[in-house]
Design a protein around this nucleic acid. Structure first.
Lengths: 337, 337
DNA sequence: TCAAGGGGCTAATACGAATTAGTTCAGGAG
DNA sequence: CTCCTGAACTAATTCGTATTAGCCCCTTGA
């Protein structure tokens, strides 16, 4: 169209006409006009093959985004990611096609597409350790949303500061007169659970009160179905009451809601706070729970920032912890008589 | 390592040793062993460069996905799209980097990236006509979510069957004794509004009842703020009552809610049905409105199907209309005395 | 002995851009 | 008139894979 070579177009496209290489303003205009008319876009694939970047950020969700309870939980992260990506002029590639093995998506498989993007954001409660290690080893640029333990090296991540937030709740409980607190949940496994537990242990020790742990089982069946209190919840309630526990911190929102309902139906006075937002469907309730608000949107946005730093090799911290907001709610109350 | 050529490795990797090309079992073994030892994986980028298509589907949202009211409305579409994309082994490219001009994103601009993908899905209440025409003219594979009028040719789309759904509501109203119905809304402009109006007109004519139209203004300010009934709503209510109207169909959910509230506060008995789901924030309410449930998730999924057909040139219809579910609700009631 | 016909594999090329080493040309200095 | 220099481009190469034409060699049949 313009009678110039492919090389020239490439130079114009990348604004390289300024520095090392010289192009006349007129030629550049001509090329730009042609580009505008045809709507030509450089093929990102070829671009990435040749230049090793394409301003596309991958988003890999470990757990399938369905059912909708999950979806609602992840949505705010995506909003934050999108917002920041837009700001930086990057597009997002949702890596949806990862095959699901044993109910979990695996990153590495036959046709791994992570490399299509300049870098990727990993989203999901539990990321496979070996996958993480391999990503680090192969120096694939990525950032995890949610703190991760070392996997043969520090894992770039943007997480919520659960220990600090849980500590606030514990202190608040202590101020309200509680002396025997319980942690309801697994307290281990995914880092987000382990972090909560760690915050709990440290805080109760620091406050000089008693902290006990009532483990829950992983809900069976699909998350959407697991809304009824399992037998372990009832057992936990009994044990807690017998042990003189007056306040319970529930790792999972749904468990907290179920326990609250259970206590109410038995006419028992029990303070409850939940350590997060619903990740699986919770029974509808009017009660506003004392809980933590995870800054999901901000986490998404910052994940993009960190990812860009990783990609571009900008110096700076690769791990960020964001404070959670404590939602006062009405379920953490003064200790009864 | 094995002393074979790159071509041979490629053949082994793709299992092409079976058909057209022949490779000795021994060579294949040798290559496979080397692959296993080194953990070699074909670079997906190069792979796609050679394959000429990338199994990437673009998703272009016209209106910015923010604020959250908008976001919530679009989310189900995205869920459906993702679901189907996953099924087909495609990844999704969110075209987030499109600049916003006059509050609307434009498809065509200096750095248009639509062509990055094999094809794209367009999402938004109003798509620019000239953009559509250009897409058609340039044979860019795309599908619109939401029916579109011809733009120099039929526009591939997956929409909701508003005329049929509105007709059902009109018939239901007539069965309940209503003889003077009103349509509240613009009834023109975006196809989805025009379609509702068309369904209304046809249905009232068919039922032999009276149908009047009370237009609303486009809400001013950001959608999120426009929750209070504008002066035109009050005027519409007065006019409707004076004209003996007993049932109102509201184009926009938020208007229906506001009108309902207004009528209630005046102690007036008025049947109301809304013709869709909230696209802008509606005041919180306990009332379950008689309304339409737009099959958003299904629309998203089918849009992907149609898009694939367009891309691959598979024969078949390029325009689909999906039925809406009528939500009974409690606001369309028997005509008063 | 030679042509024909495979089997087995590789050289060469395409994919679409980025990059670099030149090439061409005009103008100025000597 | 020659040499040099810088401006303005372009030819050629690269990235890593898929694909295909074709090469080589061994058999087989005449």
């Amino acid at each position: 169209m313009t009678g110039v070579s492919q090389a020239t177009v490439s130079l114009v496209l990348n604004g390289r006409a300024e520095d090392s290489v010289k192009l006349s303003a007129e030629t550049r205009e001509r090329v730009l006009r042609a580009i505008a008319e045809t709507g030509y876009v450089a093929d990102p694939i070829a671009r990435r093959l040749a230049a090793r970047h394409n301003r596309i950020l991958g988003v890999f969700t470990y757990e399938p985004v369905f059912p909708s309870a999950n979806s609602d939980f992840y949505h705010p992260f995506l909003v934050g990611i999108e917002q920041q990506a837009e700001q930086l002029g990057c597009d997002l590639l949702l890596l949806t096609s990862a095959p699901v093995v044993d109910g979990q998506r695996r990153i590495f498989h036959q046709d791994n597409r992570l490399r299509l993007a300049d870098g990727s954001i990993l989203l999901g409660r539990s990321l496979d350790r070996s996958d993480l290690a391999r990503l680090l080893a192969e120096e694939v640029p990525f950032v995890s949303i949610g703190r991760r333990d070392d996997a043969g090296g520090p894992v770039p991540s943007v997480g919520a500061d659960y220990p600090a937030a849980v500590a606030v709740l514990v202190r608040r409980a202590v101020e309200l007169g509680h002396e025997r607190l319980a942690y309801l949940g697994q307290g281990a496994g995914p880092e987000s659970w382990a972090d909560r537990m760690r915050g709990f242990r440290t805080a109760v020790a620091g406050a000089g009160v008693t902290g006990v742990h009532y483990p829950t089982r992983e809900p069976s069946g699909t998350p959407a179905e697991a809304t009824e209190p399992g037998p372990d919840l009832a057992a936990a309630l009994d044990a807690a009451l017998a042990a003189g526990v007056t306040a319970v911190l529930a790792e999972e929102h749904a468990d907290g809601v179920a326990l609250h309902e259970l206590a109410r139906s038995r006419g028992v006075r029990l303070s409850i706070a939940t350590l997060g937002e619903p990740t699986r469907a919770a029974p509808a309730t009017e009660t506003e729970f004392t809980s933590l608000r995870i800054p999901r949107q901000a986490m998404g946005a910052q994940a993009v920032e960190v990812l860009m730093a990783v990609i571009e090799g900008t110096p700076g911290p690769r791990q960020r912890l964001l404070p959670c907001e404590v939602v006062p709610g009405t379920t953490l109350i003064e200790r009864g008589i």
